[in-house]
Structures are given as C-alpha cells and as structure tokens.
Computed example of a mutant assay.
Amino acid sequence: MKKRSGFTLIELTAACVLASIMMVALLRVVIAMAGESVQLRQQEFDAPAAGNLAARLHDDLINARGMAVTPDSILMAGFVGEDLRAGQVRYQRLRRSQRSVLVRRQGQRSELMWIGFAGFQVTVYEQDDEPRSPDPAGGGLPAVPSRFRVTLVDESGRVLCSEVIDHHAP
C-alpha cells in the first residue's frame, strides 16, 4: 500500500480549534484597543471643555465673598461673572432626560456647563480664625474659606477638575 501525503482528520480538527482560539484572543485585543481609543478620543475632546469649566469656576470662586455648598450646588455671592458686578452665581447639578448636567446660573441667565456631571467636593484647608464683619457683597452667605480644594467629578468617576483655591481676604 502506498502512503499518501496529507493531513489526517484529527490534525485538521486540532488546527481549526487552535485557529479559533487564536482568533478569539485576537478579537479580544482588538475590542480592548477600540474601547481605549474611544476613551482617548473622549478625553481629548473633554480636556478643553474641562479646562474652560475649571477657569470659569476658579474666577467665580476667587471673586466671591460668600459661599454655601450643598451636595448638588455651590452658591456664591460677590463680584461674579464676566462684568465683576455684585451678584450671585450658582453651579447646580440637575437631572435632565436620564443624565445629570451641571448648570451655571447668574441672574436670569443659565448656561449648560457639563453633561454627565456627578457632583462637587469641597475640602476646607484653612478657615479664618478671627471673626470678620459681614461683607455686604457676600449676600448674607458664610464667608469663603481662606484655602480650600474644589473637585468636580463626572458620572464615570473621572475628575473633571480639582483645584486648590487660595482666596484673598476682602
């Protein structure tokens, strides 16, 4: 009997199983890379917006004379806004169609600042020990601490901005 060259059925089955395992592993790698690519694109897009949000909040906090913080809002009174007139501004988390958003309100004007906003965290490092006479621009709110950190977080737990504010005395 003449021996034929070729593969047996067992060898072909083993090769197909190994090829399938390698394809599944390769597919997992491609899916992971695609997910990371989407995250990087989102962060690249969000970075300028988060920078603008941080700059706007920083300016409002530096020029505020009074501040009240709740889990869903920061209310400031002082010389706020672009024109630095005495008034109030509120950054508030609201629920809009299945998403939380951050809205900035000054007078009758409302601005959407972030979609997918989770919350604020304010940590006070230094508070003035000596009692101050109430600042009329403070709007009857508690005085702004001398030094504190404000952190804003989105729904995925990502920190949008975290900044230490060294507030100047009135």
Score class of each variant (00 low, 15 high):
S97L: 11
Q88I: 02
L53K: 03
D83H: 11
R99A: 11
R93T: 13
S73Y: 09
H58M: 02
R65T: 01
I62E: 05
G66K: 00
Q88M: 03
Y91S: 03
Y91R: 04
G81P: 02
S110T: 09
G51Y: 01
Y91T: 04
R95T: 13
A54P: 11
Q88E: 06
R109S: 12
L57Q: 09
R93E: 11
R96S: 15
R104S: 08
T70F: 08
A54S: 15
I74G: 01
V69D: 07
R99E: 04
F79Y: 14
E82M: 15
R99W: 12
G87D: 08
G51M: 00
R56P: 13
R95V: 14
V69Q: 12
A68F: 15
H58W: 10
S73M: 14
L102K: 02
L75W: 03
Q106F: 02
P71F: 10
V80P: 04
T70V: 09
L84Q: 13
R95N: 10
V103S: 05
N63P: 04
V101Q: 12
L84W: 09
Q106E: 09
Q108N: 10
R105W: 03
L84V: 11
S100V: 05
P71Y: 10
D83V: 10
A64C: 05
M67E: 00
V103L: 03
R90S: 11
R95I: 13
L94D: 05
L61R: 01
S110P: 03
